[in-house]
C-alpha cells in the first residue's frame, strides 16, 4: 500500500514536471552558459581496438544537435564503447571525433569544452556508496567548485541538486546513503546527477535498465520532453527496442562494432531488428 502511494505521488510529480507551466531544469538554447552555438558531434572512421579485438570498426556518423538518438544492438556490439568515445573517456585507436565548429576531441582544449557541456548516466550508476544521494548529485556540479575549498557546497548548488532529485522523485531520500538505495533509486540518482549539469549533450548507458517498466517509461518521457523543450541532444544506449522506437527520433544499430542501421525510428521495423539480432549466441554457447 505504501509503495502504491509513493508510486502515485511520483507519477503525479512527473506529470507536474512535464507540464508546460514548469520551468525546465535543463537550459534552453538561449540559456547556454557560454553563449556559443552548440553544434553537433561527428564520428569520422572511428576504430577502437583492445589487444587483438576490434570493439568498433570504422564507425562514421553525425550526432546532430537536438533530438534523441538511440544506439541498439546485441551484447558486445560496442555500444558502451561508442558512448565512451562520445564522452571522451575512450580515445579512438584510429579516426576522430569532431565537435562541430570547435575541432577534434583529441585536442585537450576541445575535449575540456566538450566535457563541460556533456553529462553521462552510467550503466553501473558510478555513485559513491558512502555519501548521501544529495551529495552524489552535487558531484555533477563538481567542476563549479574549487577542489581545495574548505567551505561546504554553495547554497545555490545545493538547491539545484535538490531540485534535480525532486525531478526524479527522490527528494525524500536526499540524505539517505547511496549504498542504502535500491538499484532503481540509484539509477535515478545517476540520472539526477547528469541532469543537474544542465548539459548540452546527455549520454545514457542503459539508463533505464534497473527500473521497472512503468518508471522506465515515465523517466524516458521526461528525458524526451526535455530534449524537445530545450534542444538538448540525447544519446541513449538501450536494450529495450520498444522504448528505443518510442523515445528516439533516430536509431543507430550496432553489430560486431559496425553500424548496420542508421535511420529514423519509424524505419526500424521487424526485418531490421531480425537482421540486427540474427545469430546472437544462445545460452548454450552456440549461434542460433
Amino acid at each position: 500500500m505504501t509503495s502504491l502511494v509513493v508510486g502515485s505521488a511520483f507519477i503525479s510529480r512527473l506529470c507536474s514536471v512535464l507540464s508546460p507551466r514548469r520551468k525546465p531544469l535543463l537550459p534552453s538554447r538561449a540559456m547556454a552558459a557560454d553563449g556559443a552555438t552548440v553544434g553537433g558531434l561527428c564520428l569520422e572512421h572511428v576504430t577502437v581496438q583492445r589487444g587483438q579485438r576490434c570493439i568498433l570498426t570504422d564507425v562514421s556518423m553525425p550526432i546532430r544537435e537536438g533530438g534523441v538518438t538511440a544506439i541498439v544492438g546485441p551484447s558486445g556490439a560496442g555500444k558502451t564503447t561508442l558512448l565512451g568515445v562520445l564522452n571522451g573517456l575512450i580515445r579512438p585507436t584510429a579516426g576522430q571525433v569532431v565537435l562541430n565548429g570547435m575541432g577534434c576531441l583529441s585536442s585537450p582544449e576541445t575535449l575540456q569544452i566538450h566535457r563541460r557541456r556533456t553529462a553521462t548516466v552510467f550503466q553501473e550508476h558510478a555513485l559513491i556508496d558512502r555519501i548521501s544521494a544529495l551529495d552524489n548529485v552535487l558531484l555533477g556540479l563538481a567542476d563549479r567548485r574549487h577542489p581545495l575549498s574548505p567551505l561546504p557546497w554553495p547554497a545555490e548548488l545545493q538547491e539545484q541538486a535538490a531540485a534535480a532529485l525532486q525531478e526524479v522523485g527522490l527528494l525524500p531520500h536526499a540524505h539517505a546513503r547511496a549504498a542504502n538505495l535500491s538499484g532503481g533509486e540509484r539509477q535515478r540518482v545517476g540520472i539526477a546527477r547528469a541532469m543537474v549539469r544542465q548539459p548540452r549533450l546527455l549520454l545514457g548507458d542503459e539508463p533505464f535498465s534497473a527500473l521497472d517498466p512503468g518508471l522506465a517509461a515515465s523517466l524516458g518521457s521526461l528525458l524526451k520532453g526535455y530534449a524537445q523543450a530545450s534542444g538538448v541532444t540525447v544519446v541513449l544506449v538501450l536494450h529495450q527496442l520498444d522504448m528505443a522506437r518510442r523515445l528516439a527520433d533516430r536509431i543507430v544499430g550496432l553489430r560486431d562494432g559496425r553500424v548496420c542501421f542508421d535511420g529514423p525510428a519509424s524505419d526500424f521495423d521487424l526485418a531490421v531488428q531480425q537482421h540486427l539480432f540474427a545469430s546472437t549466441p544462445s545460452l548454450s554457447g552456440e549461434p542460433t
Binding site: N87, T118, F122, L127, I128, R130, I131, A142, P147
Partner: peptide, 29 residues
C-alpha cells in the same frame, strides 16, 4: 572504485577535483 572518478573526468573535472570529490570520500573512512 574508479567509476565515480571516471564520471567526474567525463564531465571535465580536474585530476585534483577527482582526488578531492571521488577518491577522498571513498578512502577517508
Amino acid at each position: 572504485d574508479a567509476a565515480p572518478g571516471n564520471a567526474l573526468r567525463a564531465q571535465g573535472v580536474s585530476p585534483l577535483g577527482v582526488l578531492r570529490f571521488s577518491v577522498l570520500p571513498q578512502i577517508l573512512p
